[in-house]
Amino acid sequence: MTKVFEKTKMLTDVPFHYCPGCTHGIAHRLVAECIEELGMCDKAVGIAPVGCAVFAYKYFNCDMYEASHGRAPSVATGAKRVHPENLVFTYQGDGDLASMGTAEIVHAAARGENISVIFINNAIYGMTGGQMAPTSIMGQVTTTSPYGRKKELNGMPVKMSEMLAVLDGSYYIERCSLHDVANIRKAKAAIKKAFRYQMEGKGFSMVELLSTCPTNWGMTPVKACEWLKENMIPYYPLGVKKEGSTL
């Protein structure tokens, strides 16, 4: 019998704690597969965030750090400066990266820090129970925007990829989505490209992955994928935001 699918060895056998239908699982698999396919298993070092992916250090089968809330890019900077030959990546949610850690992500990009960032944008704080994120879209109901996100009260959602793309220090920024198979394939290609650029010493790369949080969105996994497509993609257009150096 021919084997058509095998779990990548870059994931441990520890069962994911993620909710059923949550796209964190898909994102993990893509990252792990890319590391293995690039032959970087013994060079990969990951930084887990504070958020639902806080236990990522249990799942990725490589040396790992768990960082404090938002500071993963700084931890990655320290790790990468000591071992420049390693493939250093952070894995961060939108509360972690776009709220608590805005200074750290902006300046890691501005320095052209040679790391790769996997940015999970699910438009909500998953782990703490569904509060508004800086990326929550207009009108979105969360536990801290019970009447829906309003411009006057909450301001506008933050488009991190576009924001980082204008920095001369960033090299490669792409936004992808995990709501269907075709987009998942594109996401994998983007992650692989980001890692490859890092190995070539090109500098800062980030792949934003539009993701679902069926639990806190209060939807079935299928409905959540539809909601993402209909509501998030129009505000967060997919595609490459930056590739190559500005200067």
Partner: peptide, 23 residues
């Protein structure tokens, strides 16, 4: 390596990263 971080918060987390890497 010398890095002027964007804040003390970031600097101490760079220390965390570098110390965790064995330096």
């Amino acid at each position: 390596t010398f890095v002027q971080a964007e804040s003390e918060v970031s600097a101490i987390n760079m220390v965390y990263g570098a110390a965790g890497a064995g330096a």
